[in-house]
Amino acid sequence: MTTTALDMVPPGTRCRVIALDVGYGINRRLMQMGLVPGSEVKVLDNSGRGPLVIEVRGVEIALSRGIAKKILVEVLK
């Protein structure tokens, strides 16, 4: 089990959210979209530059790298 920032997770990997360290408004938006500590996320697309695409609760969401950097996750097998 490894802990890392979401922007470092390669595509096709499932992980669990540990903490979100983003601004107030974004924090609320992400949480209401289902991105809370404990929830499972799948990284669909992460090319190393530009926004990444994740799947949360069956919905695809694009996140800019700035946000993804501040989301701490543990990688699941």
């Binding site: 983003v22 601004g23 974004i26 938006r29 992400l30 979209m33 926004p51 695409v53 919905v59 695809e60 969401i61 694009a62 996140l63 800019s64 700035g66 946000i67």
Partner: peptide
């Protein structure tokens, strides 16, 4: 200071 952060849904 910061640009608008992109958090958008991608419907199928």
């Amino acid at each position: 200071k910061e640009p608008p952060e992109l958090v958008i849904e991608l419907p199928p």
